[in-house]
Nucleic acid binder design. Structure first.
Length: 646
RNA sequence: GCCUGCGUAGCUCAGUAGGUAGAGCACUUCGUUGGUAACGAAGAGGUCACCGGUUCAAUCCCGGUCGUAGGCUCCA
């Protein structure tokens, strides 16, 4: 038998007999870490029980690495499936992939799992782990695999095999009595999976299609050691504390009311401050960038939305029409048709372009009840909307300027983790979800792609997520509880200007159709604020904070002085409250902390005598006694600069 | 919209094997006049989400509706 040469990472090259497995090598040589669960052969994740037949590079890996962790998660999903099959033998298994730090497995069961079921499953998993079953794999021909899964009545696996490429070699993994179709790789024994937890269960559709069978999805997580598991679970708890729905209630920012309706937020005085500040910021930036502000109605005849294509492509997201004098009127789901009307209202020449208009118009969209989610998904939403009408030559610069505006905003808020996504059409949806003009789709998508590349902006592409009238750049962010949302969007419209007969007179006197860029750099104010609440965990920077300052007299004796300070600061435009209850100063401070008020101003005998104030800022322990003038100058500057940290 | 869980005072939550409910915080009043994260006492507060059914009797059991949570689908 011939030998092969294997370069093991962290060791010298060695000769081994052909066909040896990494597992055997682990046992042969000293010093391979005990935590090894998987390996890479020439950079490819490979089962430890695979035979090595040629010279190669071998790297042993534990679950601390991202790749290693993904294998552990995946193997834990299998472990869970085995436990479910033991406890509920009639269950049919489907798929069980890994996600970042989590995994799930979808099961077809007669009745959904209860919480007790989940506990039992977890216990059974523990048992299987203790049994330390070897996980082996085998290659099977398509027919063998089909016969096997038909015999054990795993119809979903049969369906999966039937959909696979005919030439694909199939692998099955076995551990004890449980065998599953899987690409692998996996850890080599169930005993290597020890530190896991079932997180939740819910429903999911087979293959993500709502017309298909409803499956039960069980989510779980798994780590190399108990410390990492505990850390992850703690992080999940911490994330929950930042949930904008929770903080929104604690800080009394917004709420929903049964009698008003789901998805229709009511903004309290505190929450309204956030919106007002956001709007003030946007108005300032837009004025500087040459935008003109407009206002349009919330309600409109259906004809307008026929013309714009909304009734053909967007009706399922619109509220039902109402009859007004025998004519159908709709609540507006977007502002664009009105902006087009405003463009067309007076003749335009090339000298008027780019023509930039903006409006924070409230739109109404029918979101299915189960899709509503705090402020992140609502039915009445204020768009940070605007439209730019420009020539083809101006397109690139205008488009990139909008992208730059996003980044400027993100910088102001200190948002660092985001992803730009070029959302393209899916040819299969032409005519239905998307306007049927394949040539223009292609051209526009290419233009946008080139503009982004030309500006050196990093982006990913996503097919099928375009608007019905054109491709988009969406900026994706992740909320504190891990959900992904589109925060900002920038869309190109190649179709609608023509439908609205929008023209401008070019240099040569001919009438031309402008391009239209839809842009919403702050998305909707509801979602943006929902995101900001989580981003800051309710600890807003001073310029944004609903409650900037509270005045705390040490005792009732100093209430007059405190009242004077309050009035003075309010006159300067600051948001100031006065806590003149007959409480001890410690209690007033505690209450101010709970309300996350940025600055506490304490006044007592000393301050009255010296005509000063004592300033206590959140997160800064030491207090400073200063004149009111120095204090107000300092914070007015901080607010003017919109400083994120103090 | 779909599946499952949940809905008790303003908030966070107890509770009742079916006999119309309780705590802490918040609120109001009184006492206290205090120096950097909870001063003390008293009071007020709820058709137990809503509508039906079973029962002598329903907050509790059953059905429906609405809302909400976790997901799926969808989306700014």
């Amino acid at each position: 038998m011939s030998n092969i040469s294997i370069k093991i990472k962290g060791f010298d090259s060695q000769e081994f007999p052909k066909g040896i497995t990494p597992l055997q090598i682990m046992n042969d040589i000293k010093g391979v870490p005990k935590d090894t669960i998987i390996c890479k052969v020439d950079g490819q994740l490979t089962d430890l029980s695979s035979n090595l037949n040629k010279n190669c590079e071998l790297q042993f890996m534990d679950a601390k690495s991202k790749d290693g962790h993904s294998v552990l998660l995946h193997s834990t999903a299998h472990l869970m499936a085995q436990a479910v099959k033991r406890l509920f033998p009639k269950t049919k298994v489907t798929i069980g992939p890994f996600l970042e730090n989590r995994f799930y497995y979808d099961f077809d069961v007669n009745s959904p799992f209860t919480e007790d079921d989940l506990l039992e499953i977890e216990n059974e998993m523990m048992k299987i782990s203790e049994e330390n079953l070897e996980i082996s794999h085998q290659e099977k021909s398509r027919n063998e695999a089909l016969a096997f899964f038909e015999k054990i009545d795993e119809s979903y696996k049969v369906e999966i095999i039937n959909d696979l490429d005919k030439d694909e070699t199939l692998k099955v993994y076995s551990q004890g009595e449980f065998t599953d179709l899987c690409r692998g790789p996996h850890v080599h024994s169930t005993g290597q999976i020890k530190h896991f937890k079932i997180l939740s269960s819910s429903a999911a559709y087979w293959r993500g299609d709502e017309k298909n069978q409803t499956l039960q999805r069980v989510y779980g997580t798994s780590f190399q050691n108990s410390k990492d598991l505990k850390k992850y679970l703690q992080m999940l708890e911490e994330q929950k504390k930042r949930d904008h729905r929770k903080i929104g209630k604690e800080l009394d920012l917004f709420f929903f009311d049964d009698e008003v309706g789901p998805g229709l937020p009511l903004w309290t005085p505190s929450g309204t401050v956030l919106i007002d500040e956001l709007e003030a910021l946007a108005k300032e930036k837009e004025t500087a960038n040459g935008y003109l502000r407009v206002r349009t109605p919330h309600l409109t005849k259906g004809d307008l939305f026929s013309k714009s294509g909304h009734l053909d492509h967007y009706m399922s997201s619109m509220f039902s029409p109402m009859d007004v004098d025998g004519i159908d009127y709709y609540m507006k789901p977007m502002n664009c048709p009105y902006h087009h009307k405003i463009f067309a209202n007076t003749p335009k020449s090339y000298r008027d372009l780019p023509y930039r208009i903006s409006e924070y118009g409230t739109c109404y969209r029918y979101e299915k009840s189960g899709e509503l989610f705090g402020l992140m998904r609502v039915r009445s939403m204020q768009m940070n909307d605007g439209h730019i009408y420009c020539t083809a030559e101006q397109f690139k610069e205008e488009f990139i300027n909008v992208c730059n505006l996003y980044m400027e905003y993100f910088k102001i808020f200190g948002i660092e983790k985001y992803e730009m996504r070029l959302s393209l059409h899916d040819p299969e949806g032409l005519g239905d979800k998307f306007i049927d003009n394949p040539t223009l789709w292609k051209k526009t998508e290419e233009d946008v792609r080139n503009a982004l590349k030309g500006a050196n902006l990093k982006f990913v592409e996503s097919v099928g997520d375009a608007a019905f009238y054109g491709p988009k750049i969406d900026v994706q962010v992740w909320s504190s509880i891990g959900r992904e949302f589109t925060l900002a969007t920038n869309q190109v419209d190649f179709a609608i200007p023509e439908r609205f007969d929008l023209t401008y007179t070019d240099k040569d006197g001919s009438a031309k159709t402008p391009l239209c860029i839809h842009r919403a750099p702050l998305g909707t104010h509801e979602r943006f604020i929902g995101f900001l609440i989580e981003h800051f965990g309710g600890n807003f920077p001073l310029w944004l904070a609903p409650k900037q300052i509270t005045i705390l007299p040490v005792s009732d004796k100093f209430n007059d002085y405190a009242q004077q300070i309050t009035t003075d600061l309010r006159t300067m435009g600051l948001r100031v409250s006065l806590d003149n209850r007959s409480e001890k100063i410690g209690s007033k401070i505690r209450d101010a902390e709970m309300q996350k008020i940025n600055i506490m101003v304490i006044v007592g005998e000393k301050e009255v005598e010296n005509k000063t104030v004592t300033v206590r800022r959140r997160f800064i322990k030491e207090q400073k006694e200063m004149s009111l003038n120095d204090f107000s100058n300092e914070i007015l500057t901080e607010i003017k600069e919109r400083r994120v940290s103090n």
